[in-house]
Amino acid sequence: MSRSQQLSFVQAIIASITPDSCTEDMDETWEQLRFFLTDNLILAALDLIDRESVIKYNSPWGRVHYEVLGSTAMYTVFPELPSPDPDNLAYCTCPAFAYSVLISKSQLMCKHVLATLLAERLQKCVERPINADQLASLFKRRFS
């Protein structure tokens, strides 16, 4: 099975999650995800969600910006980054994404991307409104 097919299945599994899913449904969902992702990756993503580390910034013009507080730093996640490469579901600024997903292709995603995708479906993101000046300041701190 190709990487893009695996990602399509993972996307479909994640899309099936709803905030009010019952325990039986979620048990089945975790089993399906375990077919494509490691236990460590799933547990690390769920831990980030439990620690309320997925932050969703909502701009007044409708754009959304995600950041995840990792174990050593804050990382920016782009869950719907338009890419000509079908082998990437999203993009994260963490070193694990660069190495494990982009270079060695040993993983489909990093824990920050998975946490963002799951937190969004489960409605567990910490939501914060942000204006243009705050967003510019956030980008300046993050990318300079």
Rank of each mutant, 00 (worst) to 15 (best):
R121C: 06
S106D: 04
T23F: 10
A115V: 00
S59Y: 02
L102P: 00
E120K: 06
K124W: 02
G70T: 11
W30T: 08
T76H: 11
Q134K: 05
E80K: 07
S83N: 15
L135C: 08
V113D: 01
R121P: 05
L43S: 05
P19N: 05
E24D: 15
A44K: 13
I55R: 12
Q6I: 00
R128D: 01
S104V: 06
A115P: 00
P86S: 14
S104N: 02
V64A: 10
N88M: 15
L122A: 01
Q6F: 10
S71R: 12
D87A: 00
A119R: 04
Y57C: 06
R63Q: 15
T29S: 03
A44W: 04
S71N: 14
L102G: 01
L118P: 02
D20S: 14
M109L: 13
P86G: 09
C125T: 08
R142M: 12
K140D: 10
I42P: 03
L33S: 04
F35I: 15
V126P: 01
A73M: 05
L81V: 12
E67K: 15
S100Q: 00
P129M: 04
I49V: 13
V77Q: 03
Y57I: 07
Q134L: 01
F35T: 13
L33I: 02
L135G: 08
S59Q: 05
L89R: 10
D39V: 10
R121E: 12
Y66L: 14
A96I: 09
Q134R: 06
L117M: 08
M74A: 14
L81R: 11
Y66V: 09
D25H: 14
N58A: 11
C94D: 07
I55V: 13
D25W: 03
T18E: 07
T29P: 02
G62M: 06
V101G: 03
E80Q: 07
I14R: 03
T23K: 12
S53H: 08
